[in-house]
Simulated scan of single mutants.
Amino acid sequence: MENSVEQRICLKFCVLNEISCVEALKIVQKAYGDSSMSRTQAYEWYKSFKEGRGVIEDLPSTSNTEENVPKIKKIVLEDRRMTEREIARDLNISYGSVHHILRNILGMTRVAARLVPKHLDFLQKEYDF
């Protein structure tokens, strides 16, 4: 963690001194060797600093906020057949965030007691499984 923050500081310094991203990446790779950030990460951080980002640390996840937890709980209680992907699409948050909220915060899991055919005929409906 400490190492990545230092590398971001170097990238921000390069942006402020109008050094190109390619040159900035070379500087970081020379200074940190094998533990340097990847090319993709360097380009993303360089771009965000160039666009005016001032914060060097990672921003906390905004999907696990207190306002999304009751929304997800309400959706699940209204329709228990909703999938995690459908909830994520409806709330415009990531699948992983929905999964985390359901499993770790709300303590919910999907339980299927037994498999039942989707379409039952008249005799199957009368027969008690």
Rank of each mutant, 00 (worst) to 15 (best):
L102T: 03
R85D: 12
Y32I: 14
G54C: 10
I93E: 11
D90W: 09
K118P: 13
M37Y: 08
S63V: 04
L77H: 13
L115M: 12
G54K: 13
D90F: 10
G107Y: 01
S48C: 13
I87V: 07
P60D: 06
V116T: 14
M82D: 05
N104C: 05
I101Q: 02
E78G: 06
Y46T: 03
L91M: 04
K47T: 13
M108A: 07
Y32N: 14
S35F: 09
S97N: 08
S94W: 04
T40W: 09
I75Y: 09
R80W: 09
R114Q: 11
S38Q: 06
S61R: 07
E51G: 01
Y46N: 05
A113D: 13
S48H: 12
K73P: 00
A113K: 10
E67I: 01
L102G: 04
E86P: 02
V98K: 02
K118G: 11
G54H: 11
G52W: 02
Y95L: 08
R110N: 12
V116F: 11
Y95M: 06
N68L: 02
W45F: 11
V98T: 04
K30S: 15
V76T: 07
V55G: 08
S38V: 05
E44D: 14
E86N: 08
N68W: 01
N92G: 05
H119W: 10
T40V: 12
T65K: 03
V111E: 14
G52Y: 00
E66A: 08
H119D: 15
S63T: 08
R114H: 12
P60F: 01
